[in-house]
């Protein structure tokens, strides 16, 4: 059965373009242009994934509102923000409301499709049907690229997909400096250099929440970041 993806986006051209691209990938797409229309539909039937813009028509924060309502309906439903707003404040607000990832509209369609596929894989991993394990272990760090799960010293670290890809890129070759551009490319990110800094900060904070002594992510000013190898 084809997965159902709901797009809530007030711009008709973008809505149609994304819908076409997703349909071409075999997804079933439901497109809505406002929060009330989307909520009315979700009340009847929940999609398998929701792609939400923040500003919806005359509701500048309609997407946040919708995300909160959806999270109330289902704790597991993957929610992606896809928006033109890229301030740190918006990103943090979106992720706090329970969104699985926060993408800006600069993202290319192939990247978007890859993200959606990855989210579905993570969902499948949680619901049982075990996907092939692609585990990378670096000392205390355990990365599962199949389930998109991360654990540090045996404890799970709750990273978004974006953050997962960044950690994955860094940790694959410990000690190697990853330039920002490289990080962005590998992580399938389309973010500005400025936002990379805040992504790294958030990742550090999440690891620090699990282990107060965490210091593996090194900043090399002017160059990029690296994952410190064990004992380094």
């Amino acid at each position: 059965m084809a997965k159902t993806i709901a797009i809530v986006e007030d711009d008709p051209a973008i809505r149609a373009n994304y819908a076409d691209a997703l349909r071409r990938q075999g997804y079933e797409v439901l497109a809505y242009d406002s929060r009330p229309a989307a909520m009315a539909a979700f009340a009847l039937r929940l999609p398998d994934l929701a792609l939400i813009d923040i500003g919806l028509g005359d509701e500048p924060e309609g997407g946040f509102e919708l995300c909160r309502s959806l999270r109330a309906l289902s704790a597991r439903l993957p929610i992606l923000f896809l928006t033109a707003r890229d301030s740190d404040f918006d990103i943090v607000s979106g992720l706090r409301l329970g969104a699985d990832d926060y993408l800006t509209k600069d993202i290319s369609l192939p990247h978007l499709l890859a993200r959606i596929a990855a989210l579905f894989r993570r969902l499948d991993a949680l619901t049982g049907s075990p996907p092939p394990e692609e585990v990378t272990e670096r000392g205390d760090l355990r990365l599962d690229a199949g389930r998109f799960s991360v654990s540090w010293k045996g404890q799970p670290v709750d990273l978004t997909l974006t953050e997962f890809w960044m950690v994955h890129t860094l940790a694959r070759h410990p000690g190697h400096v990853k330039e920002r551009e490289q990080l962005m490319r590998d992580a399938q990110l389309v973010v500005d250099e400025g936002t990379i800094t805040s992504h790294i900060k958030r990742i550090r904070k999440k690891f620090l929440a699990v282990d107060a002594a965490f210091d593996r992510i090194d900043t090399l000013y002017g160059m990029g970041y690296r994952w410190k190898a064990d004992g380094a």
């Binding site: 711009d11 373009n17 691209a21 071409r24 033109a84 509209k105 600069d106 290319s108 369609l109 192939p110």
Partner: peptide, 20 residues
Amino acid sequence: SHELRTPVAVVRSSLENLRM
């Protein structure tokens, strides 16, 4: 830049659809 992002996204997604 914020206002221009949406039309840029329209053009980008259209081009990518075209390429696909």
